[in-house]
Amino acid sequence: MTLAQATRGQRIEVVAIPDPAVRAQAIRFGISAGERVECAEKLPAGPVIIAKGRQEIAVGRRLAESIEVRPA
């Protein structure tokens, strides 16, 4: 499934981030393949907010659709 399909409050594990530039940036944020995060919030047709510890990151919907995750 993709990050865009996660539901609010769901715990997920990041499987793959295809775009290399985004992937590198995400590693710096602390989110790389294998990392467990929470889908903290989902705006209707808008960004998905993922939380890892106290870190909250908003991810645009189109980008979220390209990020592969699985329930954790």
Partner: peptide
């Protein structure tokens, strides 16, 4: 580019 932003407290 798509949104990827850090939300500060």
């Amino acid at each position: 580019t798509d949104l990827l932003i850090d939300l500060p407290p």
